[in-house]
Amino acid sequence: MREGDTIDETSDPVPSAAGEADDPGCLRPGEARRLLARAPWRRLVVIGDIPVERSAEPLAGYGPWPWYDRVAAALREATAGLAYLNLLGRRQATAAQVRSAQLPAALAFRGDLALLCWGSGYVARETSDLRGPTAELTRTVAPLRDAGYDVALIGLGPAAVRPGPAGRREQGAEQQRRMGDRARAVAVRHGTLCVDLDPPTAESGQLPAWSGDRSRRTGRGHAVAAATVVRALAAALPAPTPGHRHGQLRPG
């Protein structure tokens, strides 16, 4: 493990703030336990190109916990004693750095569920050629699958692109959309799940999902993102059968 990595095997579930309990975009009390009752996972790892974020932009009625910690807490509601390793760095990583620095630690952890976040670190800044980032994504997903991990590709998508000079934000958003298409193709090829962390319903009137400068999510943004991941994981679980094993998430 590197400085900044966190491993958590004992933390209590993240509590729900008052506003979250009445927000349909967020997990309702008891929802995670119900949705994930059949979840087989016991060891969760989070890797990817986004920097670790220990608190959200404050928003009344919503807790400050980041979405990945919330997902771990939701899984722990269904599986007591879930082990959780967060390998996100303090700074944004490139696709190559995710593969070279985080992947070995994830494999050494010997987990069974990996959330692999991809965002601007997988989008080339100076060229529209996405073959390199796509290859790096494949080189990260394939070893995880070979090691027995169920994998969910967590796409930050166009909504995460920060404002910039005229035309640049639109260009960045288009690049994110194109990379999203490639990520979905990788997911189908390797039997993994693909989740858009920022669905169109994330913004809700006066309850923003992002800070004004879009540098970080609000408390609601993190709560909605966590609910999106948890619901996607639950929906991808196969129907219960006696022979179910890990590695059988239905791609989406």
Rank of each mutant, 00 (worst) to 15 (best):
E136M: 11
A101T: 10
D196K: 12
P51H: 12
G148A: 09
P238E: 08
P251M: 09
A72S: 10
P242V: 12
A232C: 11
E20A: 14
R131E: 00
G164P: 10
G25I: 05
W67E: 02
L88G: 12
M179Q: 10
T218M: 14
A17F: 12
I7Y: 09
T140D: 01
V46K: 01
L249F: 11
S128V: 13
A183P: 01
P13A: 14
E57V: 15
R250S: 07
A39V: 10
A225L: 11
A235Q: 04
P158K: 07
G19S: 06
A235Y: 05
A78L: 04
T140P: 01
P163A: 14
E126H: 15
T127K: 07
P66F: 14
R189Q: 07
G155D: 05
R33T: 08
P240F: 10
S11E: 06
R131L: 00
E20W: 07
A187L: 02
G61T: 06
W118P: 00
R169G: 04
A78E: 02
Q206T: 14
G205I: 09
L116A: 07
A159R: 07
G167T: 03
L233E: 03
G252K: 09
R182I: 00
L237C: 07
R76S: 09
A234M: 07
A227S: 09
A235I: 04
G19Y: 04
Y84Q: 05
A223M: 06
R70L: 09
P251S: 09
D129V: 00
V123R: 00
T201S: 15
A74P: 02
A234W: 05
W210M: 15
R220N: 08
R33E: 06
G119N: 11
P251Q: 11
R220M: 08
S100R: 13
R90H: 08
A142M: 10
D5T: 08
T138M: 08
